[in-house]
Design a protein around this nucleic acid. Sequence first.
DNA 1: CATAAATTCTACGTCTTGTAGAAGTTCAAG
DNA 2: CTTGAACTTCTACAAGACGTAGAATTTATG
Lengths: 122, 122
Amino acid sequence: MATLGDLERAVMDLLWEHPEAITANTLRDLLSQRSSGADARPLAVTTVLTVLSRLEKKGLVERERSIRPHRYRAVTSRADHTAELMLEVLGSAPDREAVLARFIGTVSEGEAETLRKLLGRD
Amino acid sequence: MATLGDLERAVMDLLWEHPEAITANTLRDLLSQRSSGADARPLAVTTVLTVLSRLEKKGLVERERSIRPHRYRAVTSRADHTAELMLEVLGSAPDREAVLARFIGTVSEGEAETLRKLLGRD
DNA sequence: CATAAATTCTACGTCTTGTAGAAGTTCAAG
DNA sequence: CTTGAACTTCTACAAGACGTAGAATTTATG
């Protein structure tokens, strides 16, 4: 897998917020709103298209080619994607448990509670 | 923070394995052994030095400039570094709990047990 | 078929990383 | 102090990832 650039990330965030597949133009509009500073200038649609193609190649985005203005949507949910990334970072190191220890030491009490529930006993 | 390249990663791995600060030359030798394929050719020392400088700039490596062949060592342990990366990936998303749920669903039973202990009750 | 809309190609500047030679610095021995 | 070897810093370049978008091509539709 890999890391995403800023624009790629912004596009993924929007796709994650929109479960229904959307068009490149819609995406461009959403991106414009989001980045509304005095610096304005919206991206060219081709820019958005290029980014979408790259994300598709990376397996993060799927597109429907059957309808004309193609529709794009994220392949996985943001939560799944993030969890996968975390596992990738955790890797298969010999010190996995040590890493988990450090990690657990940092989550909030509320999250710790959630984790306890999730871990239940079985 | 960021992601490390292959060589940067290899260097960090060696530094993590060697708690005592070591020299660039030692590192180069260790790297040579490690990558002993039929492809041989060891890296130039300057290459190792460049990588070390970059890692230093990134805050991952510290060097002692007082003694002549400078000594290098990792600033944090691998476990700490990895845990930090995981937290960075987890980020401050609104769906942190959902991410944790996915994440927990993937660890081994042994690790789950470790996590239960770490989370204790309080 | 002409045309507007949409998609794909091609391209370029910047940044990161692997790689290392050239140039400068330092220290110990003579 | 001078010199030479060891060491470090500078400078450089190729390749790949990303942001960005114009040029060229494809596709419906009147």
